[in-house]
Structures are given as structure tokens and as C-alpha cells.
């Protein structure tokens, strides 16, 4: 009986962990593209909010989830374009522009939501769960791993696809070179500016998709500031995973696990463990990762440095 309960607990926690991790996985994989090209975008928190709001608003108006996700990705690309204009073309400080983007994302989405949507209240249609044949029938873990919605499954595919693109295509090679040796890229006749614009826009659209997951496939409603630091956690995931997309998938899952366990602890005050200890764990682990895994060979060499044509 004890084992049975433990298994159920594990399965439920794992399901919650993957669900929690999904928006972070998208944002982190996107940020890996951006950072691999030498650009640090700390504005993904604001970008995720924009994706969450635009996705919600579009689906609320049209009734179509597909249109909602498409609009969110488009909004993410536009946000990325703005960030790229400032950081690549004007060569403004990436951290400063990122801070501005976070404020703009929070302010704009909350302003528009309160002006137009605050009375709707009903939320958008639920994204159906997709039961994978056979596997979803497995005891315990069938529910956890094979009865999620399509966006959750896609997070795994996106992580592997990102690895393929970054490490097995010439586009990915050039993109990474843009972060490590931009001069070398320029010598081969490719445009560093263009690659950085592309990397930023890929990163921002994935962050916006992660945000839209929250409103369209998780909570089904927009709440002001609902990303609640997930963009910053994604930044931590990127460092922790050493700029590897598949690594980012598993690190996000671990962070999601801490979140799910922390919720369990809140429901069990009799255990006497402060749930805040687990809440703080991802942040503490990230700092420790920076300390112990400070193998700088992994980090893009020109991360955060604007490119100046000689």
C-alpha cells in the first residue's frame, strides 16, 4: 500500500512538473538561440507576458486557439525586432534594454487587459489533452507523461529540434560563431547583424509561445504579471544547462519538480519543512551552478558585447 501511494504521488508530481516546466522550456530554448549568438536578452519575462496577453486576446476575440498561438508568436517576433533594433543597430546596453522591455511588457499588457478584458472573466476554451495510444494506458505514469496537451509534448520536440539546428546545420554553426567570433563570421561574408537579428527574433518568439501556453493551455485566463518570474528562471536554466537545449529541457523539469513539491509541502504543514526552502531551491542551485560549473568554454565568448564593424 505504501509503495502504491508513493507511485501515485510521484506520477502526479511528475505530471505537474512537466506542465509547470513547459513555458520555461520554450523561453529557455529560445534564450539559448539568442545567447549563443552573443546577445543577452533579460527582457524575455516581458516578452512572455506579451505572448500570454496577445494569445489570450486573440483567442478570446476569434475563438481559435491556433490563431491565438500564431498571434502570440508574431507578437514575440515584433518584440524581438524592437529589442534587436536597440541592442544590435543602436548598440545600446542589452541589460538596460531588457529591463525596459520587462517594464513595457508588464505595463502594456496590464493596461490593455484592464481597459478591454477585465469584465470578460469567462476565460478561453481549454486546450484538449492528447491521449497517446497505448502509452497513456500505462499504470501511474501513463497519466503523468502521456495525457498532456500538444504544447507540452512539443516542448520536448522543440528542445531536440533546437539541438539539431544549433549543432548540426550550417545555420546553427554560423549562429554560434556569431556569438564566439563575430569577426570570423564577417570575414566569410555573412552578416553578423542579420544573424543576431534572427537569433533574437527566434528567442523572443519562443518566449512568447511559452507565455501563450500559460493563457491558452494552462490557466485559460490572463492575469496581470502572471509570468511571475518565469522569464528570469529561464535565464537561470540557460546558465545551468550550459547553453544546451536538451539540457535546458531537463533542468526546467527539475525546477518544475521543485515547484510541484513545494506546492505539496504547502498542503502538508504537519511535516514541519518550510515550503519556502523548496521555493528558493532553483535560485540557490543556479548560483551554485555558476560557481561550480564556471567552465567558461561553454558560454558564448562575446555574450553581452555589441558588435562593432571594424
Amino acid at each position: 500500500m505504501e509503495h502504491f501511494n508513493l507511485l501515485v504521488f510521484l506520477a502526479v508530481t511528475l505530471a505537474a512538473a512537466w506542465q509547470t516546466a513547459t513555458p520555461i522550456i520554450y523561453a529557455a530554448v529560445g534564450e539559448i538561440f539568442t545567447e549563443r549568438a552573443g546577445v543577452l536578452n533579460i527582457g524575455i519575462e516581458g516578452t512572455m507576458l506579451i505572448g500570454a496577453f496577445v494569445g489570450f486576446a486573440t483567442t478570446d476575440l476569434t475563438g481559435s486557439l491556433a490563431l491565438g498561438f500564431t498571434a502570440a508568436i508574431a507578437a514575440g517576433m515584433l518584440t524581438g525586432l524592437l529589442f534587436a533594433c536597440f541592442t544590435v543597430t543602436i548598440k545600446a546596453n542589452q541589460v538596460v534594454v531588457g529591463v525596459a522591455l520587462n517594464l513595457l511588457g508588464l505595463g502594456l499588457t496590464s493596461f490593455l487587459f484592464r481597459t478591454y478584458f477585465v469584465h470578460t472573466g469567462s476565460g478561453v476554451p481549454n486546450m484538449p489533452a492528447v491521449h497517446i495510444p497505448i502509452l497513456s494506458g500505462l499504470p501511474f505514469f501513463g497519466v503523468a507523461l502521456f495525457q498532456q496537451n500538444i504544447i507540452v509534448y512539443l516542448s520536448l520536440a522543440v528542445a531536440f529540434l533546437a539541438r539539431f539546428v544549433l549543432f548540426s546545420t550550417s545555420f546553427g554553426l554560423t549562429l554560434r560563431a556569431t556569438g564566439d567570433h563575430p569577426e570570423a563570421v564577417a570575414i566569410t561574408g555573412r552578416s553578423v547583424v542579420l544573424y543576431r537579428y534572427g537569433a533574437i527574433m527566434i528567442g523572443s518568439s519562443l518566449a512568447a509561445l511559452g507565455g501563450a501556453f500559460l493563457t491558452l493551455a494552462d490557466v485559460n485566463q490572463f492575469v496581470e504579471g502572471m509570468t511571475d518570474g518565469r522569464g528570469f528562471i529561464a535565464l537561470a536554466v540557460v546558465v545551468f544547462s550550459r547553453w544546451s537545449p536538451v539540457g535546458a529541457f531537463f533542468v526546467s523539469l527539475i525546477f518544475g519538480l521543485f515547484y510541484a513539491l513545494q506546492l505539496e509541502l504547502q498542503a502538508q504543514p504537519s511535516l514541519g519543512i518550510p515550503y519556502q526552502a523548496l521555493q528558493a531551491m532553483p535560485y540557490i542551485l543556479t548560483i551554485l551552478a555558476l560557481v561550480f560549473v564556471h567552465n567558461k568554454q561553454d558560454a558564448p565568448r562575446t555574450l553581452g558585447v555589441p558588435y562593432n564593424k571594424a
Binding site: 525596459a100 520587462n102 517594464l103 513595457l104 508588464l106 505595463g107 496590464s110 493596461f111
Partner: peptide
């Protein structure tokens, strides 16, 4: 929240 937009 307009104030955040202005700050940004």
C-alpha cells in the same frame, strides 16, 4: 499600470 509603460 500605465506608469510602467512610461518608465519603460
Amino acid at each position: 499600470v500605465l506608469v510602467f509603460v512610461i518608465e519603460g
